[in-house]
Amino acid sequence: STVAPPALPPYFIKGSIIQLADGELKRVEDLKTEDFIQSAEISSELKIDSSTVERIEGSHTSPNFAVVQFSVGEHRAQVSVEVLVEYPFFVFGQGWSSCCPDRTTQLLELPCTKLSVGDVCISLTLKNLK
């Protein structure tokens, strides 16, 4: 039996308008590492963590999915996420990357490189609230 893959969020489609924390508007394909860093600095609740890709493997449930294992933050906590193979992550200093960049470009028109073990992705955690 075939199951229709879930739709990707609309904001990854090329041309989508993204609002940074200072109010500036940019297209998703024009975002730079600094945009995320500066937005997180302004944010009172969110902070950026470095998440290093430790492993990428196919999902057991569907060929449309991959399981990406990250080492998150200075404590290197292990976090695994199951995502569509075309789901883009933002790699520090590099830009959008996915497990299957051809599919990302085909479906979203978002310029994308191949996500690889050792890549350092931008992720978010909560700032310590007191």
Binding site: S39, I122, T125
Partner: peptide
């Protein structure tokens, strides 16, 4: 035209506190 907040594009990876 919809406008999306920057943080919706970033995965929220919250490590569980082990200490």
């Amino acid at each position: 035209v919809p406008v999306f907040p920057w943080h919706s594009l970033v995965p929220f990876l919250a490590p569980t506190q082990s200490d």
